[in-house]
Amino acid sequence: MEKQMLKICALQMNVSADKEKNLTTAESELLAREGQMDLAVLPEMFCCPYESSLFPEYAEEEGGLVWQRMSALAKKLGIYLIAGSMPELSEGKIYNTSYVFDRQGRQIAKHRKVHLFDINVEGGQYFMESDTLTAGETFTVFDTEFGPMGLCICYDIRFPETFRSMGKKDIVMAFVPAAFNMTTGPAHWELSFRMRALDNQIYLLGCSSARDPEAGYVSYGHTILADPWGQVQAQLDEKAGVLMETVDLDREKKIREQLPLLKHRRPELYA
């Protein structure tokens, strides 16, 4: 029986205030790797600065320019594309939304960030997404020939219930477009991905934007792939770069058989 291998690409790109430049960067970097991947992921707010006050200016309705360009890119490359996230305008509200396109460029899922990033760390980061964004209300799973895949956005990773909800559909991998900062990144980025991958016995990919010290919000970077054993399979540094890896889903099955955490859960006691 042929081994089940998934080729993934995560683009840790520089994000500027120029939407067209951001789109062109995403397109050119992925087109340069045509034929080398089954699935590609972009960072959180890949087409605009990660600043709450700017989200209304960059917001687009579903089917807008960014959506169209990413749909066409997925179709041209024949890949699944998780188009990072972008500000989505819908019925007068703005969401932090990630669209998923299949190999034909069809939208097969979208995730609206469920947990908004409202923090005020003494001596560290202050940020209030709720100033301009509305929270999503659903957890997101989409189907592929490799199995069901989970999707959430950045701050969602901090809530175990996010992954337990997706896990009910037996996801084999999950993706997190993200932008941790210089307060939370060094402290919690790698720990969060290793922990959630281990708890749920999945491969877990976090795709960040590259670090720009001059930006209003400075991203930590360090795009990461954690495996079902809770180890880091690959990780970038803070600079712009591309993470290309092959995920061995047969190994995931073996880990679940040998250390059957998911079978040993007793949900009737957890309420």
Rank of each mutant, 00 (worst) to 15 (best):
M5W: 06
L6I: 10
K7F: 05
N14Q: 07
A17Y: 08
N22T: 03
L23A: 02
T24Y: 03
T24M: 06
E29R: 07
L30Q: 05
E34D: 15
M37W: 15
M37D: 13
L39N: 09
P43D: 14
P43W: 07
P56G: 00
E57N: 08
E61S: 12
E62A: 12
E62K: 12
G63N: 09
L65Y: 13
L81S: 00
S85M: 06
M86A: 09
S90Q: 06
E91Q: 15
T97A: 13
Y99M: 10
V100C: 15
V100T: 15
F101M: 08
Q104N: 15
G105C: 02
Q107G: 13
R112F: 11
L116F: 05
I119F: 05
V121I: 11
G123S: 04
G124V: 01
Y126S: 14
T132N: 00
T132C: 02
G136C: 00
E137G: 10
L151F: 03
L151A: 04
C152D: 03
I153H: 08
I153D: 09
I157C: 15
P160K: 12
E161R: 10
K168T: 15
D170P: 05
A178C: 06
F180E: 11
T184R: 06
A187P: 02
S192Y: 08
R194C: 05
R194Y: 02
M195R: 12
R196N: 11
L198G: 05
D199I: 11
N200K: 00
L205H: 07
A210V: 12
R211D: 09
G216Q: 12
G221A: 10
T223D: 12
D227L: 14
V232N: 11
K239P: 01
G241F: 01
L243E: 05
L243C: 09
K254Q: 10
R256G: 15
E257R: 11
L259K: 15
H264W: 14
R266Q: 13
L269V: 10
A271V: 09
